[in-house]
Computed example of a mutant assay.
Amino acid sequence: MTRLSTHDAIIIGAGPAGTSVALTLARRGWAVAIVEKRLFPRRKVCGEYISASNLALLDRLEIGDAWRASAGPQIRRVGFFSGNTRVEAAMPRARAGRCADDGFGRALGRDVLDTLLLQAAC
């Protein structure tokens, strides 16, 4: 029995890496399927901060404007806390981007980022 594939690539995992690969391949004309074991969107406590150095990638994936519209304010300081001890420092400014507010990173929930990437890939 011969089976014909309906996809050029099957991506396992619809997180940022998987959807970025799927989006890149789809824009090059590949028929792509994304397989994810969990229902989207999903909340995750990791990966909510995106540094300004990554905005060029989001722009290439054509979700940069949507990210800018949804992300929180610029993160200009970082702090570490342990008991009564606190250390704070200024965040480094990234090279100037295409928008005035691209100098610093910002936070966006993974559920929103994953949805932006998945919608762009489909």
Rank of each mutant, 00 (worst) to 15 (best):
residue 54 N to P: 00
residue 23 L to T: 14
residue 121 A to C: 13
residue 3 R to Q: 14
residue 46 C to I: 09
residue 35 V to T: 08
residue 94 A to T: 07
residue 7 H to S: 15
residue 114 D to I: 02
residue 92 P to W: 15
residue 54 N to Y: 15
residue 16 P to K: 03
residue 83 G to Q: 07
residue 10 I to E: 07
residue 113 L to D: 00
residue 9 A to P: 01
residue 63 I to N: 03
residue 74 Q to A: 11
residue 119 Q to G: 03
residue 100 A to K: 10
residue 100 A to Q: 09
residue 59 D to V: 08
residue 118 L to Q: 02
residue 120 A to E: 09
residue 60 R to K: 15
residue 38 R to H: 03
residue 92 P to Q: 10
residue 55 L to N: 13
residue 33 A to N: 10
residue 82 S to T: 06
residue 53 S to M: 13
residue 122 C to M: 07
residue 41 P to N: 03
residue 38 R to Q: 06
residue 12 I to W: 00
residue 14 A to G: 14
residue 33 A to Y: 03
residue 95 R to C: 03
residue 15 G to C: 02
residue 24 T to L: 06
residue 64 G to C: 03
residue 39 L to G: 07
residue 37 K to Y: 00
residue 94 A to M: 08
residue 49 Y to W: 04
residue 26 A to R: 13
residue 31 A to M: 08
residue 10 I to F: 08
residue 3 R to T: 09
residue 7 H to P: 10
residue 57 L to V: 15
residue 66 A to G: 05
residue 50 I to T: 14
residue 109 G to H: 09
residue 51 S to E: 14
residue 57 L to Y: 04
residue 5 S to L: 10
residue 85 T to Y: 05
residue 97 G to V: 05
residue 114 D to F: 04
residue 87 V to N: 04
residue 80 F to H: 02
residue 42 R to Y: 04
residue 108 L to H: 08
residue 29 G to K: 11
residue 3 R to C: 12
residue 41 P to C: 05
residue 109 G to C: 06
residue 96 A to T: 12
residue 110 R to K: 06
residue 63 I to V: 13
residue 88 E to G: 08
residue 116 L to K: 00
residue 20 S to L: 12
residue 19 T to K: 02
residue 30 W to S: 14
residue 111 D to P: 01
residue 56 A to E: 11
residue 57 L to C: 04
residue 66 A to D: 13
residue 23 L to F: 10
residue 20 S to R: 06
residue 30 W to I: 09
residue 83 G to H: 12
residue 14 A to L: 09
residue 51 S to G: 11
residue 11 I to K: 03
residue 36 E to N: 03
residue 61 L to N: 04
residue 44 K to A: 03
residue 56 A to K: 08
residue 93 R to T: 10
residue 40 F to A: 01
residue 58 L to N: 06
residue 52 A to H: 07
residue 74 Q to H: 03
residue 10 I to L: 10
residue 95 R to V: 02
residue 68 R to K: 08
residue 9 A to C: 05
residue 31 A to S: 14
residue 70 S to Q: 12
residue 58 L to V: 02
residue 29 G to A: 02
residue 118 L to A: 11
residue 106 R to M: 06
residue 17 A to C: 15
residue 60 R to Q: 09
residue 44 K to R: 11
residue 76 R to D: 10
residue 11 I to F: 05
residue 114 D to P: 07
residue 95 R to Q: 06
residue 113 L to R: 00
residue 104 F to T: 03
residue 107 A to Y: 07
residue 88 E to P: 00
residue 58 L to K: 02
residue 56 A to H: 13
residue 5 S to N: 11
residue 88 E to M: 07
residue 101 D to E: 14
residue 99 C to S: 10
residue 13 G to S: 07
residue 68 R to T: 13
residue 80 F to Y: 12
residue 53 S to R: 08
residue 43 R to S: 08
residue 92 P to E: 14
residue 43 R to Q: 11
residue 54 N to V: 00
residue 7 H to K: 13
residue 102 D to Y: 07
residue 69 A to Q: 15
residue 69 A to H: 13
residue 15 G to S: 04
residue 39 L to M: 09
residue 76 R to T: 15
residue 57 L to R: 04
residue 19 T to L: 02
residue 75 I to C: 08
residue 104 F to P: 05
residue 52 A to C: 12
residue 63 I to T: 12
residue 35 V to Y: 08
residue 116 L to N: 06
residue 98 R to C: 12
residue 1 M to T: 07
